[in-house]
Amino acid sequence: MLLKSLRSLFALLVLPLVLTLGLGMSSTAIAADDQTSQQMANAKTSDADLWRAVKAGDSGFTTAQGVEANVLINVAGNQGKDIKNNYLTPAMALAVLGVFVAFVIFYFVNGPSKLHGGFSGKMVLRWSKADLWIHWVLAISCLTLILTGISIMTGKHIIQPYVGEGVWAALINASKFIHDYVGPIFIGAWILCVVKWMPLQTFKMYDLKWFLVVGGYINFGPFKGKHPDSGFANAGEKMWFWTLTVFGLFISISGIMLVLPGLDLPREASMLALLVHAASAIIIIAFTIVHIWMATVLSEGGMECMVSGYCDETWAVQHHNLWFDEIKENGTLEYKD
């Protein structure tokens, strides 16, 4: 009986202890599971916050050196890329094709501006040898930059899909190489052009009439045969000169910013330079096409000026009468022997 009583007493003492330990271990396990779940939730929230900050362009910490080394994703860079791809690249294609097609249509409808009195055969000095050199170095370098720039900007859309990867890689690499090394030649010729020709490019009141009658190039309607007064440079040439001066400055500065890695510019500055460079190029391309059409196809006898430096006397009287009168009066009129 005593032994049976002792067993009962032991059971009564041990059973609550076991129950207590069991409940305690269960509580600990549940608490541990809750803590792990909370840590996982916090980790997910932390990761989400991290990548949200990265995508927003927030700065972090890195051992890398240099400008913006602590920024993984630059928001301005992505936005600039979207502007370039969605707006500037199509605008460049439109500038090339649109302006060219417009002038082709105009030529077939209107025809060239003929010399009313025919060629006189007497050639008047208009440009010096130095002027010719400046013009052609500027023209060739500008056209080279235009062609390579078009390849760089739009080639991915109009060339790459139709050629092999090897051909495309070689083409884009060559375009980039030529573009970078022809750039300084263009800048040098552009500086000489601006400095030497600026005194001849001031706008006068009579230039307004030139615009009103489209320079006398219209061969039909009330504008036919209307040749407005013009000095050494007509209003259209002056507009082309000042466009080249202003946007040539923009394109030169932005180009230098893009090709000199030693400047170590912030991404925002580099992207702004790229957008300014592309926008300026689009404007220069459009005006260059107009200039070439006007000088070669639409103006009979106009191309000779930049080949030999001389123009036919009839051409001078018809297109630049005030300049011709001036050189006759001051004794600087010089004919070709």
Rank of each mutant, 00 (worst) to 15 (best):
M257W: 10
A279H: 01
L258T: 02
P261A: 04
S252F: 09
L263Q: 05
V246P: 02
E268C: 02
F250G: 07
L258V: 05
R267A: 12
T243M: 09
E237Y: 08
M239Y: 12
L263S: 05
T288V: 13
W242P: 08
L265P: 07
L274K: 13
T288N: 11
A286C: 06
I283A: 07
M239A: 15
A269H: 10
A273G: 07
A286P: 03
S252T: 11
E237L: 13
G255D: 01
S280F: 00
L258G: 03
A281N: 12
S280P: 03
F247T: 03
S252G: 14
I251W: 00
L244H: 10
G262K: 07
A286Q: 03
R267Q: 13
G248M: 06
I253M: 05
S254V: 09
P266I: 06
L265V: 10
I285Y: 05
I283Y: 03
L249F: 15
A269R: 10
A278C: 11
L258H: 05
L260M: 12
F287Y: 11
V259I: 14
A279S: 15
A273R: 03
L258S: 07
P261R: 03
I251N: 09
I284M: 13
L274T: 09
L265Y: 08
D264H: 12
T288K: 00
F247D: 02
I284L: 15
I283W: 02
L260E: 08
I285V: 15
H277M: 07
